[in-house]
């Protein structure tokens, strides 16, 4: 699917096209006012969606509910049409739902190589297949190849985020959730990471939901932008439209 087609579909995303990831009537919250209040969202296969909004808007909670770390009060999560709401985090991961959580997302006591092998554990059975996939990742992420024997806690912030992304991609997931991958990274590193992400999405048909504060960078690689505020979607449009809407940017994105 071309970027234009994806963008066109984004506008009619509540239609009947099969969604790779769907969130239906989702309500999440521990007590009192819900953090996410009746959210509907459908991501067609291969679409890269930037999830935008201020701190506390509900971006992280949405991602954690989709991956299963948080149980919703009501509503459904569907992966490729299949209702996974009642399944565990581990099961969703094995079905091809990958998440790169914010911050501490690598195993710091393991080496770069071991972290990458962990990523391929379920979806690449056999040591040989994993080894090959790991070596392939070293070609995409050259800085990691030089540090393959280093422990996670010896890596710089940029290298850690690179490793987290490589580990998520190695399993050839169907859906990838990323939470603030640009946080604390130099702009040059962000550009590099996002270029790899865009490339992976185009080559493998990966569906991406990217929560970001770095609105400009996120929209530059996204097909579609979804803006959330107080647990509800307030705007859902092709990325370039969101980027060009000064009122929207001023009201919800803070610049």
């Amino acid at each position: 699917m071309t970027a234009d087609a994806r963008a066109a579909e984004a506008v009619t995303s509540h239609g009947t096209t099969p969604a790779m990831l769907a969130v239906e009537g989702l309500v999440v919250g521990y007590s009192g006012a819900p953090v996410i209040d009746g959210m509907q969202l459908r991501l067609p296969p291969g679409q890269v969606v930037a999830l935008l909004g201020a701190n506390g808007a509900g971006k992280t909670t949405l991602l954690r509910t989709v991956s299963g770390l948080v149980a919703p009060r009501s509503g459904r999560v569907r992966l490729d049409g299949e209702d996974v709401t009642q399944t565990t985090v581990e099961d969703r991961a094995r079905r091809g739902l990958a998440q790169v959580p914010e911050g501490h997302s690598i195993v710091t006591e393991l080496t770069v190589d071991e972290n990458l092998h962990l990523g391929g554990l379920w979806r690449l059975p056999g040591t040989k297949a994993r080894r090959a996939a790991v070596d392939e990742m070293y070609q995409t992420f050259e800085p990691l190849a030089r540090r393959r024997a280093s422990l996670g806690h010896q890596l710089s912030g940029g290298e850690r985020q690179m490793l987290a992304l490589a580990r998520a991609l190695i399993a050839r997931p169907r859906v990838l959730l990323l939470d603030e991958p640009s946080l604390g990274l130099a702009p040059r590193v962000v550009a590099q990471l996002f270029a790899i992400l865009r490339d992976a999405a185009e080559r493998t048909g990966l569906t991406v939901l990217l929560a970001e504060q770095n609105v400009t960078s996120a929209l530059s690689i996204a097909d579609r932008g979804v803006v959330v505020s107080l647990g509800a979607i307030v705007a859902d449009a092709p990325a370039e439209k969101i980027a060009a809407d000064p009122a929207l940017r001023h009201a919800y994105l803070g610049f």
Partner: peptide
Amino acid sequence: LQLRAAATAPEVSRLLGI
């Protein structure tokens, strides 16, 4: 590998299917 990962980073490990 799974034992070591689960011991030091339980949440990340679950996200990887362990």
